[in-house]
Design a protein around this nucleic acid. Sequence first.
DNA 1: ATTTGCATGTAACTCGTTACATGATTTA
DNA 2: TAAATCATGTAACGAGTTACATGCAAAT
Lengths: 183, 183
Amino acid sequence: MSLRNAVLGMLSLRESSGYDIKRHFDRAVHFVWNASNSQIYRELVSMEKDDLVSSRTVQQDGRPNKKVYSLTDTGRNELDRWLTSPAEVPYGKEPFLMRLFFMGRAEPDEAIKVLEDRRAQVLSLLAVAEERLQVFSDPSRTEHPDLLWWQVRLIEGFQRVNTAQLEWIDSLIASVKADAGDG
Amino acid sequence: MSLRNAVLGMLSLRESSGYDIKRHFDRAVHFVWNASNSQIYRELVSMEKDDLVSSRTVQQDGRPNKKVYSLTDTGRNELDRWLTSPAEVPYGKEPFLMRLFFMGRAEPDEAIKVLEDRRAQVLSLLAVAEERLQVFSDPSRTEHPDLLWWQVRLIEGFQRVNTAQLEWIDSLIASVKADAGDG
DNA sequence: ATTTGCATGTAACTCGTTACATGATTTA
DNA sequence: TAAATCATGTAACGAGTTACATGCAAAT
């Protein structure tokens, strides 16, 4: 039930259509959360049924009409309740680590390929985070200053964690190569 | 389709019942992957249908009979294919970071509570990892030496990443407290 | 001419969680 | 005598993915 919370948060920033929310997910929080169109539209319908959001249809010319959702009071309360509720138990879903658990079955050069693959992925995540920081540092961005502070911190945290992961992967690659050289 | 891969890996170590696999998930890889009983039993049935595993029933006295699964050749091939296949795109499902994204809505003391909660969770993950390393360092454990090397590395990686996260959280708590003192 | 952006959804499916059901044996 | 361990599953639900369907406007 966490997509629901994320959507509540999005709608607290501004009223939005399903399409807007999807766009904002992709642009602003893609490395933190993601969701498909169909999932978002479905969730909005179910949230309206639960009286967390209300909708109105906005006529547009030259483009399709849109259905704009906004938070109800119930929705706003639910958002604030979630923010301060006890943290979810950490996931335990790390497909990459799961692979390494059995990587002893593979040849060293295959393992190196897998590690270098992952290295590239982490690098590209870090690039996205860096680019996000640039966007945030734009002084014309004054819309939600209270949120901005936290958003910058969270990107910094993301960078720290992924930098640590990168260093670990590099040391792993180095030691697999050394072992392969020995044997 | 990643539980399937994890189960293939488990069965490559030894033939096992659903119960055995669940136990091994919980004991050996809980911080990397987890799955419920019902999910595992369901997946085993579907894997047998796809000819990745085969089963036989083992009679026992004093305890319930068990259904023991082992890898078929197809299953073993599938496991090795997965190990060296291109890495899955990283998830982008970080409920904790998603919360921080909107944390500006909460009061500083509420935010500190949330952060300290998380801090405790990370500490307990690190404790589990440490305990796992102890188990691995037991010299009587000679069963799968090729896998052991990787398993130790992966725990080290887990520790590095989570230590980085812990340090970040600590610095965050400190700066929220400082801000609250100022304001 | 083709792709991208805007905009909404449905259908079918897989993956994951929670609750329930059963029952003997061993340990505290 | 209560709880944990061993052992297998079903049912219902919730969460997430993939593929499909439609159609106009603007930019390349």
